[in-house]
Simulated scan of single mutants.
Amino acid sequence: MLGQPAGPDLDLAQRFYAAVLGWDFRPAERGDGTMVAFRDGAPVAGVGALGGSTGGPVVWTPYFAVEDADVTAARIRERGATMAVGPLASGTGRAALAADPAGAVFGFWQGEVVPDWSVGQGSAPAWLELRTRDAFAAAIFYGEVLDWGGERPGCCTISYEHDHVVLRHGHDTVARITGGALDEAPDPVVHPRWHVHFRVPDLESVIEAATRLGGRAASPVQTSATSRWIVLADPEGALFTVVAPQDTSA
Score class of each variant (00 low, 15 high):
L2Y: 13
G3R: 01
P5H: 05
P8A: 13
F16N: 00
V20D: 07
L21F: 10
A37I: 05
G48I: 02
V59N: 01
P62K: 09
V66S: 06
V66D: 00
E67G: 14
V71F: 03
A73M: 11
R77K: 11
P87W: 07
G91N: 07
R94F: 00
A96K: 03
A99F: 11
P101F: 12
G107V: 06
F108I: 11
F108D: 12
F108C: 05
G111W: 04
E112M: 08
D116S: 12
D116P: 04
Q121W: 07
P125A: 13
L128R: 02
D134M: 03
F141C: 07
G149Y: 11
E151F: 07
R152S: 15
T157L: 10
Y160T: 14
E161H: 11
D163F: 08
G170I: 11
H171D: 15
T173N: 09
T178K: 09
A185L: 10
V190Y: 01
V196F: 01
F198P: 05
F198V: 01
D202I: 06
I207R: 05
E208F: 11
L213S: 11
L213F: 08
S227C: 07
R228K: 10
D234P: 12
E236N: 02
G237I: 10
L239K: 06
A250V: 12
